[in-house]
Amino acid sequence: MSKTYSSADHAYREVKERILTGVLPGGELISEGEVASDLGMSRTPVREAFLRLETEGWMRLYPKRGALVVPIPVAEAEHVAHARYVVEVAAVRAVAVRDRTALIAALRASLDRQRADAEAGDRERFALEDTDFHRTYVVAADNPLLAGFYDSLRERQRRMNSLALHRGATDMAAIIEQHAELADLIEAGDADGFATALVAHLSTVHRLSLSGL
């Protein structure tokens, strides 16, 4: 039994990672047999993984046809962006009245890693670093409720980042330039300027019209 559950957990992590990174794009129909063969296991743990992913909203199962990878709904992308805006701006307003030396050093280090990932053409590592860049100043606000809520968005945020990079809507150099601007505004303690720049950043990267922000 432990082997079955271990295999199911492995299948779950593998398939979910492929969804988050865009290897399995939204709208693609896959079968238990294909995944089982690829992972070198039986269909039973894959079926369990698919059921778990369906419960979480990543897949929609169709008996005898396969599993559909659920695309990111436009409304969900907008909701995630709006939620991020609220949390990130609140965090920056909090850190604006504190010593930001360590935070700015961490953001500059992240920018260096982003440049290295862009130079290497590693889009998946860049997408992760992108997500962590924004999380850095949220955590710096030292509000566990804000950080916890923000982390609940992490997987959807990562998937949106990967999608934006894969479709070529915004190149990594442009994203880095926008991140550098956000870091400069945080360093200056300019929360209002940060809020304006964040709306522009989220709108261009994710092709969204963020009305009301």
Rank of each mutant, 00 (worst) to 15 (best):
E76D: 11
G193D: 05
V92T: 14
S110V: 07
R13A: 12
D192M: 01
D142F: 04
V199E: 07
R207H: 11
V199Q: 09
G22Y: 05
I19N: 03
S37R: 10
V199W: 04
A109V: 06
P73Q: 12
H201N: 09
W58Q: 04
T101E: 12
A106N: 12
T21P: 00
E17N: 11
V80R: 07
A174I: 06
R13Y: 08
A36R: 01
E129Q: 12
V87T: 14
E119W: 02
E56G: 02
A200I: 15
Q157T: 15
L182G: 02
A197T: 14
E56A: 03
M41R: 00
F50E: 04
P73T: 12
G193Q: 07
T21R: 03
L103H: 00
V89Y: 04
T55A: 11
I175Y: 03
F194W: 06
D132N: 09
A75E: 15
G57C: 12
R52Y: 01
F126A: 01
W58D: 11
A197P: 03
Q114T: 07
A90G: 11
V15C: 03
V80D: 11
R167H: 04
M41V: 15
V86F: 13
S162I: 07
T101F: 02
V97S: 11
G148M: 11
V97T: 14
H134D: 02
K3N: 09
K16A: 11
A200M: 13
H10D: 13
D151Q: 15
R154E: 14
T55I: 05
A67I: 10
V35A: 02
D151A: 15
Y62D: 14
M1W: 06
E34L: 07
L153S: 10
D132R: 03
Y137M: 09
L153D: 12
T101H: 09
H10G: 07
M1S: 13
M172K: 03
A75K: 07
R93S: 14
H206N: 04
P144R: 06
E28F: 10
R115Q: 13
R167I: 08
T44P: 00
S7D: 15
Q157M: 14
A188P: 01
R52L: 01
L185T: 15
